[in-house]
Write a protein that binds this DNA or RNA. Structure first.
Length: 310
DNA sequence: TTATTTGCCACGTGGGATCA
DNA sequence: TGATCCCACGTGGCAAATAA
């Protein structure tokens, strides 16, 4: 199966690796290489986004590595642009300063006189505004309403700036972690792997074990596999004449279930130091959770089968 | 704001498998 | 041998997301 390295049009410099079958237009899937450089609609999760195709290949790992490199480059570019803009700003400011210096001293002198005449006048906002507009603030006194609006925008701007820095730091950490541990085995000796970042994001967006199992199924199986298989391939008792659907790949299926059980701390056998009552409790919890997961996954496969083909 | 869709889950059914 | 568990399946409810 072909994979595509795409850059999201709505979020430039953000790269992902998608499957060829995620391309919305079925006719385009046949000639993925021809899509390089062009934009195409790609279904991502429940939504459809526009993505610019950068690369096409069979080996998903290589594409993921390339995506990481592109993302890291974009980050570097962004940082250097920010630095350039900052130096440019400083240069512009120094020019402005020279031009405005004479005028500013005059205004400051007037301001001092006014302040001495009206002691009740409130002092200027001592926020971190010297970074953004060091000269114009004293040079351009405005009406109270304008000041209020300015303060409001300033607060919003600062909050967004902090948020942006926070996100950038998180992004850097993620990029680093992905570079360090690209692929992880979902469950020991299962041979089922996926990228650490994907696993982390699935964990993040699934607050329940059953939901996590469903999301892992979405990631590990193709839409076709989900539609044409049942969980265990057994015959339906309620509808005995119906031809049973084949079982979905038990290796991947068991890896998902094993992973969830492990995450919930009921993987394997109860510890030797547990009392018989506790061991029973452990096994009961494990049985219940496993039943919940298989039931949810079984339901999930049927739901996928029932969905109309787009 | 309202209607529709989607994702998830609960409940019930019928029959096979397993256990005490 | 009866009780219990397991499984596939159908149906419908609920909440959140999305579209109109």
């Amino acid at each position: 199966m072909d994979h595509l390295l795409v850059e999201w049009v709505s979020e430039p410099k953000t790269y992902s690796v998608v499957r060829s079958e995620d391309i919305v237009d079925g006719t385009k899937r046949l000639n993925c290489v021809g899509l390089i450089g062009s934009e195409t609609e790609i279904s991502w999760g429940k939504k459809v986004y526009l993505g610019r195709v950068h690369e096409v290949g069979q080996d998903k790992r290589i594409l993921i590595q390339n995506a990481d490199k592109l993302a890291a480059l974009a980050l570097l570019e962004e940082e250097s642009t920010a630095t350039n803009q900052l130096t440019l700003k400083v240069a512009v400011r120094s020019k402005k300063r020279k031009k405005q210096h004479t005028e500013a001293t005059k205004v400051l002198q007037i301001d001092k006189i006014l302040a001495s005449q009206n002691l009740d006048q409130p002092q200027g906002n001592e926020e971190d505004n010297n970074e953004n507009n060091p000269v114009s603030a004293p040079a351009e006194p405005s009406l109270d309403t304008d000041i209020d609006a300015q303060i409001d925008y300033k607060e919003k701007f600062l909050a967004l700036k902090i948020k942006y820095r926070e996100l950038r730091r998180k992004h850097k950490t993620l990029v680093r972690s992905v570079a360090e541990t690209n692929e992880v085995e979902l469950y020991p000796s299962s041979g089922v792997t996926l990228s650490a970042a994907e696993l982390a994001s699935i964990k993040l967006m699934s607050n329940q074990p059953t939901v996590r199992a469903r999301n892992l199924f979405r990631r590990l199986f193709t839409l076709d596999e989900l539609r044409t298989h049942s969980l265990l391939g057994k015959r339906c008792n309620a509808n005995r004449n119906a031809i049973p659907l084949p079982a979905i790949d038990p290796n991947r299926c068991n890896a998902v279930i094993g992973y969830i059980l492990k995450e919930e701390g009921v993987d394997g056998l109860p510890a030797n130091d547990l009392s018989s009552a506790d061991a029973k409790l452990f096994l009961k919890k494990k049985r219940t959770l496993k039943r919940e997961i298989t039931k949810s996954l079984s339901d999930f496969l049927r739901e996928e089968t029932r969905k109309p083909i787009v």
